[in-house]
Nucleic acid binder design. Structure first.
Length: 431
RNA sequence: UCCCCGGUAGCUCAGUUGGCAGAGCAGCCGGCUGUUAACCGGCGGGCCGGAGGUUCGAGUCCUCCCCGGGGAGCCA
């Protein structure tokens, strides 16, 4: 019998196949046993009767949840079966029989218990489609940049200095020298974009902030891009093209996973169908205030303010030209309004929050020095970064996209911890 | 760091005015020839988060502590 994956069963109706996987659940009725087997690509029901194979029938009774097994039989179309196909079992063989009951039952569990068993929870029917969607998002990002001629290059994760002096970093001892886990690869991408023109990387970044919310992780993945000779306007166009490309690719390639999560693909399509909304920081503050959320000019947007904006537009919205005072030192000032930064945040629809932060970067050494001093940062650790403005400085822009928040939005899941296989949060380092 | 909610069987929870510790699921035993988180009958299963206090009597009331969840701030 030929080993096949469950997602390919439709091509094998009428023939004998071998499924290799794990027992998800079993049911029985008189002299019929139903074994639900999953193999990572899907879930299929095997039907076992005592006449077809007495040994398999007895085994089907005794196998516990998550036993690994090989199941052979004939594929047939069956409207009553989950997935539309089932296997008439003629062969059932355990690979490993669990030594204790599987902790994750089919009934409800609390979040604390599930997080303690994340290594087993990821096998469940809701978690596997989310992780497949994450894969689709990452592939879409890579293929978008590849098609556009961007070079995949890497930023270091171990760094000696903060990217933005403000954010809290995870400190570590680097052979006696203080070092940190990187919170962004951006500064390094600015160096590689001067070598390669258009660059991107996708990698883990770390924030030691004591955030305790459904949209924060201490370790998360960013997709960052940097392009030489790209200005603020071009930067926004690039971001919009990327986000639309990712949503459309995932919706086209993964309808089954979206369906299992009861996420409406047409809603996602509608959200990216039109050009993204675009407001200035000051317009956004006025909109937020009009929506009844307390906020003043000079404040950054909190979660309620982002929700108000995302509700107002019903599609992704760029908020651009923030006051430079509340943004990092490396952002270029608006030549017309030097108190504003040439930057933008992209807010996802449906309250999923900020998914992109980007800006045009300072390209003159004296300007960068002034802004470093203004931010109260030392010059010495940034010497290499200042060097980039000494030899062939060009206008350049870039941005960082939060991978988990993008997955959260596309998959339509309420908590970010389900958008990554092993989430790291404020008080969770296990498993 | 701050605010709110919670901690009772392996899991999810109920527990009245302070008066014998409960259910469903999971496990084990039995039944049922098309189940859909199957269903039906039976059995075993408890440091009621911890410490102290009030009381004849505390899962229940009070104080402190520990742990978990949600949110704020900050950010992607």
């Amino acid at each position: 019998m030929r080993p096949v994956y469950i997602e390919e069963l439709g091509q094998h109706v009428g023939s004998e196949v071998l499924i290799q996987g794990w027992l998800y659940n079993k049911r029985s009725s008189g002299k019929v046993r139903f074994v639900l087997v999953r193999d990572g690509t899907g879930l299929v029901q095997g039907v076992v009767t005592p006449t077809a194979d007495p040994a398999a029938f007895a085994l089907a009774d005794s196998l516990p949840q998550e036993a690994s097994l090989r199941m052979g039989g004939t594929v047939r179309a069956e409207p009553r079966a989950p997935g539309g196909f089932e296997v008439a079992v003629t062969h059932l063989e355990p690979v490993h029989i669990p030594t204790a009951p599987f902790p994750i039952g089919l009934k409800e569990h609390g979040p604390g218990f599930l997080m303690d068993h994340r290594h087993l929870w990821i096998r469940s029917r809701r978690q596997t489609p989310i992780l497949r969607l994450r894969d689709a998002v990452l592939w879409a990002i890579r293929s978008f940049f590849h098609e556009r001629g961007f070079v995949a290059t890497e930023a270091p994760v171990l760094v000696g200095t903060a990217v933005e002096g403000t954010t809290t970093l995870f400190p570590l001892d680097y052979f006696g020298t203080p070092a940190y886990l990187s919170q962004s690869g951006q500064l390094y991408l600015e160096a590689t974009c001067a070598a390669l023109g258009k660059v991107y990387w996708i990698g883990p970044v770390f924030r030691a902030e004591k955030s305790k919310t459904r949209r924060h992780l201490t370790e998360f993945w960013m997709a960052e891009a940097e392009q030489a000779f790209l200005d603020h306007e071009g930067n926004l166009a690039l971001q919009e093209d990327l986000v639309r490309y990712v949503v459309e690719s995932v919706v086209a390639e993964r309808p089954r996973d979206l369906g299992e999560l009861e996420r409406d693909p047409s809603l996602l399509r509608r959200e990216v169908a039109e050009p993204f909304a675009r407001v200035t920081y000051h317009e956004a503050v006025a909109l937020v205030q009009a929506a009844g959320v307390a906020m003043e000019v000079g404040d950054d947007f909190g979660a309620p303010a982002e929700d108000a904006l995302s509700q107002h537009f019903g599609r992704p919205v760029f908020v651009e030209r923030f006051p430079a005072a509340i943004k990092p030192f490396y952002m270029k000032r608006d030549p017309v309004r030097p108190d504003l930064a040439l930057c933008a945040d992209l807010i996802a629809p449906e309250g999923y929050g900020e998914i992109i932060g980007g800006s045009q970067r300072v390209d003159r050494e004296e300007e960068l020095l002034a802004q470093l001093r203004e931010a109260g940062l030392p010059e010495e650790p940034y010497r290499w970064y200042l060097d980039l403005r000494r030899w062939g400085a060009v206008p350049h822009s870039g941005f960082g996209l939060g991978v988990e928040r993008t997955v959260q939005w596309i998959a339509g899941i309420p908590h970010i911890r389900e958008a990554i296989p092993f989430p790291r949060t404020l008080d969770r380092l296990y498993p």
